[in-house]
Design a protein around this nucleic acid. Structure first.
Lengths: 216, 216
DNA sequence: GTCTATACAGTGATAGAC
DNA sequence: GTCTATCACTGTATAGAC
């Protein structure tokens, strides 16, 4: 009836794939990934249940699309911060600055409306087996990871490459685990600390990780 | 026909719940958790599909039972190693010894036949939301975690409690992530290091974590 | 090309017969 | 206690309307 291409009323009107992704994101954040069926998503989006398969191919493909969509801001912000790093006269960055450039864009996502769902999706991609999911992760993150590794190597010129890789792996672990907010430490300490405090998490994480990277 | 209570032939004969758990563990390790249905499990176990619900209540309850079953050896070994720690004349253990007592029992599980499934289950429990799963984790690990935290506090008398908690949380992250073998570092470094090398992982992990705990 | 209606095999769960 | 029958629901596939 009304114009369909220009002037998208307020918000609810959008292309079908977009509506599906929006509905999926909202429902996932409310009830987890397994707790939501494709039919619920398409119903909430106001589209037919088969259209999800037409546009995406499968439920998993919907998850992967949503993941890639929400990952790109992190990547872009990381790239920007990495490029803006101050270097000394030997071209070396400060370790803490590199860590900040890598970790802050990820951790800050927790304060956004998209954060919860993205973290769920990421944790699933990372920790569930399956070649497809690992390929998605590789396509998404490998380039920035390599860039970060090169900068870390410059910041730590005396560290053997092998140790550097191990420690980068460990850092990824703390990051993913912290973002997933498993609530373990809250349970043990009876809520005396809150890992959902992003600012504190970032400060603590950088101090801890920097010391780990500098270990003998 | 033959005796049913005593003398369990070779192995395949066992109580129905045990057979279900055995079949579940084998199938999960082969094809992941979501890739296996309760019907497949009960069929492989040679029992009726309804018996799983009769004995356990739900598919999730089967997972939780299996998780608790495989977690207890880790807990016991941890307790034993923690109790056997050498203390100095002030009653203080060496940081690296505490970390070894905590991490070794977990990481060594990766070399056992049960390891793969347990790690899958643990990752799911930790990262999926849901009060029930968190309760299972708390019931399983909280006591040993508290014991470990006390020993860490003794090994690091000058570290503020808050920082100690944060760093313990970070250590849990590296441990869970490393055990889950997400293959990220292998992807970035084209298999130049293998996080599946348990011995190397343990050495690297302890050096890295000890430095993190000792950070200023 | 996009969307709809409909159908299918397989899922976890349950009530009730044996 | 165990098994059969059946439930509502899932992800997926396809034929055909616009």
């Amino acid at each position: 009836m009304t114009a369909r291409k220009s002037v998208p009323a307020t918000e609810p009107l959008a292309t079908t794939p977009e509506r599906i992704l929006q509905a999926a994101e909202r429902l996932f954040s409310e009830r987890g990934i397994d707790g939501v069926s494709l039919r619920e998503i398409t119903t909430a989006a106001g589209v037919n249940s088969a259209s999800a398969h037409y546009h995406f191919g499968s439920k998993n493909a919907v998850l992967e699309t949503l993941f890639s969509l929400r990952a790109s801001p992190i990547i872009e912000r990381r790239e920007a911060m990495l490029s803006a790093l101050q270097l000394d006269r030997l071209g070396r960055p400060v370790l803490e600055d590199v860590l900040m450039a890598f970790l802050q864009p990820a951790l800050e996502l927790l304060n956004t409306p998209h954060g919860a769902t993205f973290t769920l999706l990421r944790a699933r991609m990372v920790l569930e087996s399956g070649d497809v999911k690992h390929q998605v992760l590789a396509r998404t993150f490998d380039r920035t990871n390599e860039k970060t590794l090169k900068l870390l190597a410059k910041a730590l010129p005396k560290l053997p490459t092998k140790d550097l890789y191990w420690r980068f792996h460990f850092m990824l672990g703390t990051m993913v685990y912290t973002m997933a907010q498993p609530g373990r430490i809250e349970s043990v300490t009876k809520d005396k600390i809150k890992t959902s405090d992003t600012q504190a998490a970032l400060e603590q994480l950088i101090r801890y990780t920097a010391a780990g990277f500098r270990a003998p």
